[in-house]
Design a protein around this nucleic acid. Structure first.
Lengths: 312, 312
DNA sequence: TCAACATTTTGTCCAGGACAAAATATGAAC
DNA sequence: GTTCATATTTTGTCCTGGACAAAATGTTGA
């Protein structure tokens, strides 16, 4: 009759899976800070209560946001939640109708309603066209999904579902537009190693292809050397790199600087994504995008500065 | 000029990521069997050579197939590869044209050609119809992909790409057929906890929906209690559970027995998937499917045994 | 404002002992 | 021979407590 899990507590391996904190880390926190302080079973092995795991999850999320364990571990769960809330990106509150649509879409994600999700997105895409769809729907939706994820309202499978559906939609839309492959400028898109998120790339491509640019995507996780070589070999005009919020800003800066040096002077280097927020101007000769909406304008400016394909 | 990784060796954390073997396991193997025997860096930390990691990967795959470490660790890499080759499912070698198509599709998977992959599958689906597509294309293709994965010819992202594209295709096809939702029998589809593969479920659904069955999928990883409760509450005629090759047969058997006891006698319990190969007859009152092609016939037989919806 | 240096924090690594769960071998009973 | 229960081996995971480098932070001087 009772096959369900006894709600007594979780062993350390399960906590590692649930929170993403390594077993070594869990043990060393216990030694240093006194938290978590799991009970022990009859074999002397750690047994973590659900409360402790919840608090650990909160701490993990905050650490991912750049806060430090020592400042967090003493706090009450309520205080941690509050911190998380405060960190959530302030949403510019688009018009209420659109907001309601977003909530509906988020509901579909939460409930795993693949079909409904796909249909809603498809409808919005048809209604707005590709570029406005990316700028007005996907950009804010990504923020919402990111926040929900941060708060723990979404789990891995839900986030995955959202990403895959959006990718499928974008790929289909882009490939239907990409007829004229001889466009200008020639843009190379990719991400750095350790950056796995392909969504930013696709969104950038979706903004540029309708402007007549010739976009080639290398996908995610391209080593710096390979980016440099590909840019040279393919005579690209622009190299565009995307960074998700999770990407360590430090790595991004170093990498961009190094890449800039390795590229020919006439090749532009563009970078964007949530991982670059707030670290602008510091980089000479690199165009940092705060918003994906700036892409079409940037393309037009590039064209004015590089007129006349001539022959070559 | 040289930002690339020095090919000297990998630290233990990287080996854990690459091979899926826990750090503790790597260390205890070294202690017990003398393999792997990594070099040490200036801090005394383990540095694994590429050769050792390759051999570890082979061993890992063979262990997943049910072999035991002690028998494997002494063998040469060549012998390990041979073992892996021998284990590959013997493929019934369909007609050569179809085989060539499969190879093309596998090539698309390897090269991350999302669009080409989607299009090839879509064409086959259109040509064959949903049921034949599942039986004649997806079933053998899954074996091929599984083998390639076993051999290390595919990595996680490739396997993922394949799965997602197939899922999208099947979901779209199923939802376009599922108009008449009042069909019979009422089938509840799901997997056990720890079984994450949803493809088998979708394929089963794709075989049954065209026969007029009313399929409700709970998705993957449903606790046994929840399956039982859902089956009772929804007055289902059939509960269908799917197991991928990676699922431990022992768990499957125990779980199925336990579930059979918890279900009303008039509810049929069906189970299938690569995880159940070779452990047939042992289970009374449970229908084990060796091949997904048996589903339509099984449905017809069920209908003959349960005629006349009467009223209710 | 930035760069260079000193200090603290923090995650990961190590050794080697222990033990339970899984797999296998052994034997009894039908 | 097959099925079941029981002994034995194999194997993965957990434990403690020490160590240290990389990252983050604080400090100083141009």
């Amino acid at each position: 009759m009772n096959t369900s899990i006894p709600p007594s507590g979780l062993p350390i391996a399960a906590v590692e899976r649930d929170t993403g904190l390594a077993k070594d880390t869990l043990r060393v926190w216990e030694r240093r800070y006194g938290f978590p302080s799991p009970a022990r079973d009859s074999n002397g092995e750690r047994v973590y209560s659900a409360d402790q795991v919840d608090k650990l999850r909160l701490i993990r999320r905050l650490i991912d946001q750049g806060l430090r364990p020592a400042k967090l571990i003493g706090l009450e769960p309520a205080a941690l939640s509050e911190l998380l809330g405060g960190l959530g990106t302030a949403h510019p509150a688009a018009d209420p109708a659109r907001s309601a649509q977003f909530e509906t879409i988020l509901k579909f994600v939460r409930l795993h309603l693949h079909e409904d999700l796909r249909r809603s997105l498809q409808q919005l895409l048809m209604k707005l066209g590709l570029q406005r769809f990316v700028g007005e729907v996907l950009a804010p939706l990504n923020l919402l999904v990111g926040d929900a994820w941060l708060r723990g309202e979404l789990e891995v499978p839900e986030e995955h579902l959202y990403t895959e559906q959006v990718q499928n939609l974008l790929r289909a839309a882009i490939s239907s537009q990409a007829a004229a492959s001889e466009g200008r400028p020639r843009v190379l898109l990719t991400t750095f190693p350790d950056e796995q998120h392909a969504l930013g790339l696709l969104m950038a491509e979706a903004m540029m292809v309708p402007e007549g640019a010739c976009c080639i995507s290398l996908g995610t996780q391209t080593p710096l050397d390979d980016i440099r070589n590909a840019a040279r070999a393919g005579r690209f005009d622009i190299v565009a790199v995307s960074f998700s919020a999770a990407f360590p800003a430090r790595l991004a800066l170093d990498g961009l600087r190094s890449l800039r040096e390795g590229l020919p002077g006439e090749t532009s280097l563009w970078a964007g994504g949530a991982g670059l927020q707030g670290i602008a101007r510091k980089l000479p000769d690199i165009r940092i995008f705060d918003s994906i909406d700036e892409l079409p304008d940037a393309l037009r400016i590039w064209r004015e500065a590089h007129p006349a394909p001539a022959q070559e």
